[in-house]
Design a protein around this nucleic acid. Structure first.
Lengths: 261, 261
DNA sequence: GTAATAGTGTCTTTAAGACACTATGTA
DNA sequence: TACATAGTGTCTTAAAGACACTATTAC
């Protein structure tokens, strides 16, 4: 057995018991939660499984990690080959490794979360392929409690998720909510130019509750991460709002945590 | 190649390309950062490597993940066999998978963080074994910036860390700092009965800065997570402080996130 | 008594929530 | 003009920081 022998000392046991070919080892995969916000609801990209096991169920895009490939590169590859997306924000979420989470064999999945604006999300989905779908999330808990999260299909029905992917989606929502008050999450989910109202809608969708308009504006404007462009939105039936853009001025107390790579 | 074939559709490529025996796959290990606080400094358990590669350098306790073993169980096993510790707080930190992080072969490490009070930490270290050490951390950044973290030996010298373990320690410090204001971190690092001053010392050590005494007391007492025991500390040369204990009253807005298992 | 730290009361400052009000676009 | 939303000013409230003050124990 690989298990450490208690009778040897220190790190020696670690090395002596190590033989890269002698033992079975788990398969290693990455699964990517591609998150967007659409009409005030958080949504994610899913693909319907066509083969056993779990045929017909909806799964996160994923793939196995190659021997010479970093986890981030594997996630980017999945994003490109299964969603046609590149150059988007990506961060590691959590690693799911319960034996039995995949009925075929032991598969440990490193989950990543990608944030895309609505336009790019719909491009990823409109690849004619009927097996792909952007589904709204149904979060049954408030605050940061956490737990599994369901998905709602285009006709309002609950979709069946494959494996432990409801848990992975739950972790993504939990992480998003937690990051919202110290990281520029919203800007990854919006186009380059956006109104403060659009940004507030994003925040409200992620948190699952409404926010105070005045306080939100004050907080965002005081934060110094947005700057007015002098331009205004068009094609609206009422007073058009100022368009802002995100600036990464990285103040000294910078709290950004991008890829930890 | 494992890489998805772009010419097939949906999840089919995922399944067709999958053969659990056909391809090399990374080894999977867990590394555990056993964190404590000692004399106002955050410290961690390390073991000196006795064999190549990286012989003489200091490493986190770790071990390979068995085929039928969950990641949490593997981390608990490492904690028990390499530190004699059981039944302590454990949470997943981050997964480190850069090719080349281990010179022997591709090893992906799921890092966990364990929190122990000072007494148990010193028990873990005092196992006569000279290859084991509890070392103070040297955090070269403020706030939540993140980055590698060094360790200081008993004579004040900087110790050489193995592999990417300085990065893993950095992630542990970053996570601890981030959790401090919404999770009952300090209680895991203290004995059952503690004074508010001890709790404040823990917070200050983790954050690396001093805190306002009044505000800290108000915040902790208002939080409802501690209750006075009516007893006082003993063997001090001045007015003894009230001893408190932690209560998990789990209010409805509960923000605890223990093991995500 | 003195020294040293525990613990309280209160003022100031800061940021969020509430809400009334003005501004500016379309139809 | 009416209407709908954008954006501002100000009052209230809650929590943190500052600081003076009292309390209690060892010596």
């Amino acid at each position: 057995m690989y298990m450490a022998d208690k009778h040897t000392e220190g790190e020696r046991e670690f090395l002596e018991s190590y033989d890269p070919t002698a033992f079975d080892r788990p398969s290693l995969a990455v699964d990517v939660v591609v998150v967007g916000v659409r009409d005030g609801r958080v949504c994610a990209l899913l693909a319907q499984r066509t083969e056993q096991p779990q045929a017909g169920r909806w799964a996160l895009p994923g793939g196995f990690v190659g021997m010479a490939e970093s986890l981030e590169v594997a996630a980017s590859r999945v994003l490109l080959t299964k969603g046609g997306l590149c150059d988007i924000y990506l961060e590691q979420l959590y690693t799911f490794g319960d034996p039995g989470r995949d009925p075929r064999t032991r598969v440990v999945a490193v989950a990543y979360m990608a944030l895309v604006d609505r336009g790019r999300l719909e491009d990823a989905c409109s690849d004619e392929d009927a097996g792909r779908l952007v589904a709204d999330l149904d979060v049954p808990w408030a605050g940061e409690a956490g737990g599994p999260v369901g998905v709602i299909g285009p006709d309002g029905e609950q979709l069946a998720l494959a494996f432990d992917h409801a848990e992975i989606l739950g972790m993504a929502v939990q992480r998003l909510r937690g990051k919202l008050d110290y990281a520029p999450v919203g800007f990854e989910l919006l186009p380059d130019r956006f109104t403060l109202r659009q940004l507030q809608d994003i925040h409200e969708a992620i948190l699952g509750r409404s926010l105070n308009k005045d306080s939100f504006r004050r907080r965002i404007l005081a934060g110094g991460q947005v700057v007015a462009t002098g331009k205004r939105e068009e094609n609206v039936n009422f007073r058009p709002a100022e368009l802002y853009r995100f600036v990464n001025n990285a103040p000294q107390w910078a709290r950004q945590r991008r890829n930890h790579g």
